[in-house]
Amino acid sequence: MPKHYRNKKKPFEYSKKWSLRSVFLLATLFLYVPIIVLIVFSFNNSRRGGNVIWKGFTTKYYDKAFNNEDLMLAFGNTLTIAIVATIASVILGTCTAILLWRFRFPFKPLVEGLVSLPIVIPEICMGVSLALFFSAMGWLGNTSDIWPFNLSNIMIAHITFCFPFAAMVIRTRLQSFNREMEEAARDLGATEFQVFKDILLPHLKPGLVAGALLSFTLSLDDFIVTFFTSGPNTVTLPVKIYSMVRFSVTPEINAASTILILLTLVLTFFALRIQTKDDSIL
Protein backbone atom coordinates (compact mmCIF):
# COMPACT_ATOMS: atom_id res chain seq x y z
CA MET A 1 0.00 0.00 0.00
CA PRO A 2 1.41 3.42 -0.88
CA LYS A 3 2.29 5.54 2.06
CA HIS A 4 0.02 8.48 1.35
CA TYR A 5 -2.94 6.16 1.05
CA ARG A 6 -2.51 4.66 4.46
CA ASN A 7 -2.55 8.00 6.21
CA LYS A 8 -5.63 9.14 4.48
CA LYS A 9 -8.86 8.77 6.37
CA LYS A 10 -11.23 6.29 4.88
CA PRO A 11 -14.06 8.20 3.27
CA PHE A 12 -16.92 6.55 5.06
CA GLU A 13 -15.65 6.91 8.59
CA TYR A 14 -17.69 10.00 9.30
CA SER A 15 -18.72 8.71 12.68
CA LYS A 16 -15.11 9.08 13.81
CA LYS A 17 -14.97 12.76 12.95
CA TRP A 18 -15.13 14.98 15.98
CA SER A 19 -16.99 17.78 14.26
CA LEU A 20 -19.81 15.43 13.25
CA ARG A 21 -19.76 13.69 16.58
CA SER A 22 -20.24 16.95 18.39
CA VAL A 23 -23.20 17.83 16.15
CA PHE A 24 -24.69 14.47 17.01
CA LEU A 25 -24.10 15.05 20.69
CA LEU A 26 -25.61 18.53 20.59
CA ALA A 27 -28.66 17.30 18.68
CA THR A 28 -29.18 14.52 21.22
CA LEU A 29 -28.84 16.98 24.07
CA PHE A 30 -31.29 19.27 22.33
CA LEU A 31 -33.76 16.40 22.10
CA TYR A 32 -33.34 15.19 25.66
CA VAL A 33 -32.67 18.16 27.92
CA PRO A 34 -36.22 19.60 27.82
CA ILE A 35 -37.77 16.23 28.66
CA ILE A 36 -35.29 15.57 31.46
CA VAL A 37 -35.84 19.04 32.90
CA LEU A 38 -39.58 18.39 32.76
CA ILE A 39 -39.20 15.15 34.69
CA VAL A 40 -36.83 16.72 37.23
CA PHE A 41 -39.18 19.61 37.85
CA SER A 42 -42.09 17.29 38.50
CA PHE A 43 -40.34 16.69 41.83
CA ASN A 44 -39.96 20.38 42.52
CA ASN A 45 -41.39 21.53 45.82
CA SER A 46 -42.78 24.85 44.70
CA ARG A 47 -46.40 25.71 44.19
CA ARG A 48 -46.54 28.58 41.76
CA GLY A 49 -44.21 29.13 38.86
CA GLY A 50 -43.02 25.68 39.79
CA ASN A 51 -40.99 25.50 36.65
CA VAL A 52 -38.59 28.33 37.34
CA ILE A 53 -36.80 27.88 40.63
CA TRP A 54 -35.80 24.62 42.27
CA LYS A 55 -37.10 24.43 45.83
CA GLY A 56 -36.30 20.96 47.03
CA PHE A 57 -37.46 17.43 46.35
CA THR A 58 -41.02 16.26 46.78
CA THR A 59 -43.35 13.64 45.39
CA LYS A 60 -46.49 15.44 46.52
CA TYR A 61 -47.43 16.40 42.98
CA TYR A 62 -47.64 12.74 42.09
CA ASP A 63 -50.00 12.25 45.02
CA LYS A 64 -51.95 15.22 43.81
CA ALA A 65 -52.04 13.95 40.25
CA PHE A 66 -53.12 10.49 41.36
CA ASN A 67 -55.83 11.95 43.57
CA ASN A 68 -57.05 14.30 40.88
CA GLU A 69 -60.22 12.56 39.76
CA ASP A 70 -60.50 14.42 36.45
CA LEU A 71 -56.95 13.55 35.60
CA MET A 72 -57.37 9.89 36.46
CA LEU A 73 -60.60 9.69 34.51
CA ALA A 74 -58.81 11.21 31.54
CA PHE A 75 -56.03 8.69 31.99
CA GLY A 76 -58.52 5.84 32.05
CA ASN A 77 -60.22 7.19 28.94
CA THR A 78 -56.89 7.44 27.16
CA LEU A 79 -56.00 3.84 27.93
CA THR A 80 -59.45 2.52 27.01
CA ILE A 81 -59.43 4.37 23.70
CA ALA A 82 -55.90 3.26 22.95
CA ILE A 83 -56.67 -0.41 23.64
CA VAL A 84 -59.87 -0.44 21.57
CA ALA A 85 -58.25 1.52 18.76
CA THR A 86 -55.26 -0.82 18.74
CA ILE A 87 -57.33 -4.00 18.51
CA ALA A 88 -59.58 -2.58 15.81
CA SER A 89 -56.65 -1.09 13.89
CA VAL A 90 -54.74 -4.36 13.84
CA ILE A 91 -57.77 -6.32 12.61
CA LEU A 92 -58.67 -3.70 10.01
CA GLY A 93 -55.06 -3.19 9.08
CA THR A 94 -54.57 -6.92 8.53
CA CYS A 95 -57.68 -7.09 6.35
CA THR A 96 -56.55 -4.09 4.34
CA ALA A 97 -53.01 -5.37 3.97
CA ILE A 98 -54.14 -8.82 2.81
CA LEU A 99 -56.73 -7.28 0.53
CA LEU A 100 -54.19 -5.05 -1.14
CA TRP A 101 -51.54 -7.74 -1.28
CA ARG A 102 -53.58 -10.67 -2.41
CA PHE A 103 -56.32 -9.49 -4.68
CA ARG A 104 -56.58 -7.53 -7.84
CA PHE A 105 -59.64 -5.39 -8.23
CA PRO A 106 -60.66 -2.30 -10.17
CA PHE A 107 -59.46 1.08 -8.85
CA LYS A 108 -56.86 -0.62 -6.69
CA PRO A 109 -54.42 2.32 -6.83
CA LEU A 110 -57.24 4.62 -5.79
CA VAL A 111 -58.07 2.43 -2.80
CA GLU A 112 -54.40 2.23 -1.91
CA GLY A 113 -54.14 5.99 -2.04
CA LEU A 114 -57.24 6.44 0.08
CA VAL A 115 -55.99 4.06 2.72
CA SER A 116 -52.69 5.85 3.01
CA LEU A 117 -54.35 9.26 2.99
CA PRO A 118 -54.55 9.61 6.78
CA ILE A 119 -50.79 9.03 6.95
CA VAL A 120 -49.87 11.96 4.77
CA ILE A 121 -52.41 14.68 5.43
CA PRO A 122 -51.80 17.17 8.22
CA GLU A 123 -53.32 16.14 11.50
CA ILE A 124 -55.43 19.25 11.78
CA CYS A 125 -57.21 18.47 8.50
CA MET A 126 -57.93 15.03 9.83
CA GLY A 127 -59.32 16.44 13.07
CA VAL A 128 -61.46 19.02 11.33
CA SER A 129 -62.89 16.59 8.81
CA LEU A 130 -63.70 14.02 11.48
CA ALA A 131 -65.37 16.67 13.63
CA LEU A 132 -67.49 17.71 10.65
CA PHE A 133 -68.26 14.11 9.84
CA PHE A 134 -69.47 13.36 13.34
CA SER A 135 -71.61 16.45 13.47
CA ALA A 136 -73.08 15.67 10.05
CA MET A 137 -73.97 12.22 11.33
CA GLY A 138 -75.38 13.75 14.49
CA TRP A 139 -72.92 11.59 16.36
CA LEU A 140 -71.48 13.95 18.91
CA GLY A 141 -70.11 12.66 22.19
CA ASN A 142 -73.38 12.16 23.97
CA THR A 143 -73.14 13.11 27.61
CA SER A 144 -75.99 10.80 28.51
CA ASP A 145 -74.20 7.71 27.24
CA ILE A 146 -72.64 5.47 29.81
CA TRP A 147 -68.91 5.33 30.16
CA PRO A 148 -67.20 3.35 27.43
CA PHE A 149 -69.81 4.31 24.83
CA ASN A 150 -69.47 8.04 25.20
CA LEU A 151 -65.94 7.59 23.91
CA SER A 152 -67.10 5.88 20.74
CA ASN A 153 -66.51 8.77 18.37
CA ILE A 154 -63.00 9.37 19.67
CA MET A 155 -62.36 5.66 19.27
CA ILE A 156 -63.59 5.72 15.69
CA ALA A 157 -61.48 8.78 15.00
CA HIS A 158 -58.42 7.04 16.42
CA ILE A 159 -59.08 3.88 14.44
CA THR A 160 -59.33 6.00 11.30
CA PHE A 161 -55.86 7.40 11.66
CA CYS A 162 -54.21 4.36 13.29
CA PHE A 163 -55.22 1.56 10.97
CA PRO A 164 -53.40 2.87 7.87
CA PHE A 165 -50.16 2.76 9.84
CA ALA A 166 -50.90 -0.76 11.02
CA ALA A 167 -51.78 -1.77 7.46
CA MET A 168 -48.51 -0.31 6.20
CA VAL A 169 -46.41 -2.22 8.72
CA ILE A 170 -48.28 -5.48 8.16
CA ARG A 171 -48.05 -5.13 4.39
CA THR A 172 -44.30 -4.73 4.60
CA ARG A 173 -44.20 -7.99 6.52
CA LEU A 174 -46.47 -9.70 4.00
CA GLN A 175 -44.05 -8.94 1.21
CA SER A 176 -41.56 -11.36 2.68
CA PHE A 177 -44.15 -14.16 2.77
CA ASN A 178 -43.30 -17.12 0.62
CA ARG A 179 -46.30 -17.94 -1.51
CA GLU A 180 -45.01 -21.50 -2.02
CA MET A 181 -45.63 -22.24 1.66
CA GLU A 182 -49.27 -21.49 1.13
CA GLU A 183 -49.41 -23.64 -1.98
CA ALA A 184 -47.67 -26.49 -0.18
CA ALA A 185 -50.21 -26.31 2.62
CA ARG A 186 -53.02 -26.35 0.09
CA ASP A 187 -51.54 -29.38 -1.61
CA LEU A 188 -51.42 -31.14 1.71
CA GLY A 189 -55.12 -30.54 2.09
CA ALA A 190 -55.38 -27.44 4.26
CA THR A 191 -58.50 -25.36 3.96
CA GLU A 192 -58.44 -21.63 3.25
CA PHE A 193 -58.97 -20.85 6.92
CA GLN A 194 -56.30 -23.32 8.04
CA VAL A 195 -53.81 -21.71 5.68
CA PHE A 196 -54.63 -18.33 7.16
CA LYS A 197 -54.44 -19.52 10.76
CA ASP A 198 -51.46 -21.85 10.60
CA ILE A 199 -49.32 -20.42 7.83
CA LEU A 200 -50.04 -16.77 7.27
CA LEU A 201 -50.72 -15.60 10.81
CA PRO A 202 -47.52 -17.04 12.36
CA HIS A 203 -45.55 -15.39 9.60
CA LEU A 204 -47.33 -12.10 10.20
CA LYS A 205 -46.87 -12.13 13.97
CA PRO A 206 -43.94 -9.69 14.17
CA GLY A 207 -45.78 -7.35 11.82
CA LEU A 208 -48.93 -7.60 13.91
CA VAL A 209 -47.03 -6.84 17.10
CA ALA A 210 -45.25 -3.90 15.48
CA GLY A 211 -48.52 -2.61 14.04
CA ALA A 212 -50.26 -2.94 17.38
CA LEU A 213 -47.53 -1.08 19.22
CA LEU A 214 -47.46 1.65 16.60
CA SER A 215 -51.24 2.06 16.80
CA PHE A 216 -51.18 2.08 20.58
CA THR A 217 -48.49 4.75 20.72
CA LEU A 218 -50.19 6.85 18.07
CA SER A 219 -53.50 6.68 19.87
CA LEU A 220 -51.87 7.39 23.23
CA ASP A 221 -50.05 10.40 21.85
CA ASP A 222 -52.77 11.91 19.80
CA PHE A 223 -53.88 15.34 20.79
CA ILE A 224 -55.17 17.19 17.73
CA VAL A 225 -57.73 14.67 16.48
CA THR A 226 -59.03 14.00 19.98
CA PHE A 227 -59.18 17.71 20.65
CA PHE A 228 -61.54 18.18 17.72
CA THR A 229 -63.69 15.12 18.30
CA SER A 230 -64.01 15.11 22.08
CA GLY A 231 -66.94 16.51 23.96
CA PRO A 232 -66.77 18.28 27.32
CA ASN A 233 -67.16 15.01 29.23
CA THR A 234 -64.90 12.88 27.12
CA VAL A 235 -61.43 14.08 27.89
CA THR A 236 -58.21 12.18 27.29
CA LEU A 237 -54.97 12.75 29.13
CA PRO A 238 -53.29 14.89 26.43
CA VAL A 239 -56.43 17.04 26.09
CA LYS A 240 -56.61 17.37 29.87
CA ILE A 241 -52.95 18.33 30.09
CA TYR A 242 -53.50 20.87 27.34
CA SER A 243 -56.34 22.55 29.19
CA MET A 244 -54.25 22.54 32.36
CA VAL A 245 -51.35 24.17 30.51
CA ARG A 246 -53.69 26.82 29.15
CA PHE A 247 -54.88 27.49 32.68
CA SER A 248 -51.55 27.61 34.48
CA VAL A 249 -48.21 25.89 34.57
CA THR A 250 -47.94 23.68 37.65
CA PRO A 251 -45.69 20.82 38.73
CA GLU A 252 -48.81 18.66 38.65
CA ILE A 253 -48.75 18.85 34.85
CA ASN A 254 -45.12 17.78 34.94
CA ALA A 255 -46.09 14.83 37.10
CA ALA A 256 -48.93 13.83 34.77
CA SER A 257 -46.62 14.20 31.77
CA THR A 258 -43.96 12.12 33.45
CA ILE A 259 -46.48 9.33 33.98
CA LEU A 260 -47.34 9.38 30.28
CA ILE A 261 -43.66 9.45 29.29
CA LEU A 262 -42.96 6.48 31.55
CA LEU A 263 -45.84 4.55 30.03
CA THR A 264 -44.48 5.17 26.55
CA LEU A 265 -40.98 4.16 27.67
CA VAL A 266 -42.22 0.90 29.14
CA LEU A 267 -44.13 0.15 25.94
CA THR A 268 -41.10 0.88 23.81
CA PHE A 269 -39.02 -1.38 26.01
CA PHE A 270 -41.47 -4.24 25.55
CA ALA A 271 -41.67 -3.60 21.84
CA LEU A 272 -37.92 -3.91 21.55
CA ARG A 273 -37.86 -7.03 23.69
CA ILE A 274 -40.49 -8.71 21.55
CA GLN A 275 -38.78 -7.68 18.36
CA THR A 276 -35.35 -8.92 19.35
CA LYS A 277 -36.88 -12.16 20.55
CA ASP A 278 -38.67 -12.68 17.26
CA ASP A 279 -35.54 -11.94 15.33
CA SER A 280 -33.58 -14.53 17.23
CA ILE A 281 -36.19 -17.18 16.54
CA LEU A 282 -36.39 -16.51 12.84
Partner: peptide, 13 residues
Protein backbone atom coordinates in the same frame (compact mmCIF):
# COMPACT_ATOMS: atom_id res chain seq x y z
CA UNK B 1 -42.36 8.34 20.79
CA UNK B 2 -42.97 10.85 23.54
CA UNK B 3 -46.17 12.80 23.32
CA UNK B 4 -46.05 15.86 21.07
CA UNK B 5 -47.92 17.97 23.58
CA UNK B 6 -45.60 16.98 26.39
CA UNK B 7 -42.55 17.79 24.31
CA UNK B 8 -43.92 21.19 23.43
CA UNK B 9 -44.84 21.79 27.03
CA UNK B 10 -41.36 20.80 28.17
CA UNK B 11 -39.96 23.50 25.92
CA UNK B 12 -41.95 26.12 27.81
CA UNK B 13 -39.69 25.68 30.78
Amino acid sequence: WTNLLIRTYSLLN
